[in-house]
Computed example of a mutant assay.
Amino acid sequence: MPTTPPTLPTTGASRRRPRTLLAMDPPVRDALLDATALDRLAVVAETDPSLVVRDFADPAHAGVLERTEALLTGWGCPPLTAAALERMPRLRAVVHAGGSVKHHVTDACWERGLVVASAAAANARPVAEYTVASILFAGKRVLDARRAYRERRGPVDSLALLSGAGNHRRTVGVVGASRIGRRVIELLRPHDLDLLLHDPYLPAGEAARLGARPVSLDTLVRSSDVVTLHAPELPRTRHLFDRDRLALLRDGATLVNTARGALVDTAALTAELVSGRLYAVLDVTEPEVLPADSPLYDLPNVLLTPHVAGSLGNELGRLAHAALDELERYGRGLPFAEPVRAEDLRRSA
């Protein structure tokens, strides 16, 4: 039986430096923690930043795992199974410098009473920004303009080519009032758009407060010029956009997916896109990565990117410091600002 984890540190002005272990891919550590973040890590935690664990079963890590009170995790962290937790009897907290914790936080973590935090709110910002840029570009029919300019290599009659383009009073349908979905709505509010929202968990009146009109999913799909997906990947959302639902999209509509590839039936969407009836902006797909012979790489009505909407480059610093904020709060005996709870995780990304 694992040792009962210690209680939270006593709340107060004093700061403790919990023994903290980094668990992620080493290249992720190098990208996340610049000199400023490393200096701050040394202040808020007792840790060896040169040690990054990728295998909790490695005997070489037995001693440090036994002493670890907090994990600072990132992409590539191995699953925190019951067997892994047995090797960390003092573990009390998991702070994830990324978005979803579903890849490594298991039911065993909740059974042990661990407290978990994530930098998902910080990661939502670049995803929402990418999404909003995609929506506005879709309204301007940028893919069509690019193709015409490339083919003609000279003047383009944009008034004729793009006579139906523009973002004035376009209808945008947002599927999912997640952190990212809400941020997308917030960023779209200043624009001259009509916003629809579908989320089966949304309390009455919440959509209006956000600045959108609540509708059924099929009504949203039929009514929107652009549909953007921000729902979690759950058994009931797999292929939420199947052949029948994709057929409801109006001719010339754009589907934006920055959420999870499994929300869309790739074969059905590919058929629609090959026909030229729809447009798509796809940052995630199923499978990820697509086969080399997939038509989606070359279709002129598709913008396909390799899962880059989330934090990259200098945006990673925001993730690192969001996680360090939480680690500092833990050391001060304060509750996390962005906690992850078991009941919420079951219906979130």
Rank of each mutant, 00 (worst) to 15 (best):
R341L: 14
R146P: 02
P155H: 11
A337S: 11
R213Y: 06
G333W: 04
D107A: 14
L195W: 07
L234P: 03
R16W: 12
R54E: 15
S134Q: 12
T68M: 04
R209N: 13
G99W: 06
T47S: 14
Y130D: 03
R347D: 10
L193G: 06
S100K: 05
T3L: 13
V340E: 05
G139E: 02
P89W: 06
H61N: 09
A122R: 06
R179H: 12
E46D: 15
T258A: 07
E233D: 13
A165S: 07
G333F: 08
E46Q: 13
E69L: 11
L51T: 14
L41T: 05
E66W: 11
R15M: 12
V308N: 11
A84P: 06
A122G: 04
L217P: 03
T131V: 08
A148K: 00
D157A: 15
S216M: 09
H230I: 05
V127G: 02
L65T: 01
R29C: 11
F56G: 02
P232F: 02
G331I: 01
V95D: 01
N257C: 01
A212K: 02
Y297F: 09
R209Q: 15
P235S: 04
L114K: 01
S178P: 10
N314I: 13
A57N: 13
L255E: 04
R87A: 13
A262D: 08
S50L: 13
S14N: 12
R329C: 00
E186K: 13
V101M: 05
A119M: 08
T285F: 02
R179I: 11
G176F: 02
R90A: 10
V52C: 11
G205F: 12
A342G: 10
N257L: 02
A57P: 04
R182Q: 06
L334R: 13
E69V: 12
R112Q: 11
H230C: 03
R17W: 03
D283E: 07
L202V: 13
A253E: 02
L114H: 05
A165N: 00
G113Q: 09
D192I: 01
S100R: 09
G74S: 09
G63H: 14
T7H: 12
V302I: 06
V215W: 01
Y297D: 00
E288A: 05
L345V: 14
E46F: 08
P232N: 11
L187E: 03
T270Q: 05
E129C: 10
G139D: 02
L278W: 02
D55V: 07
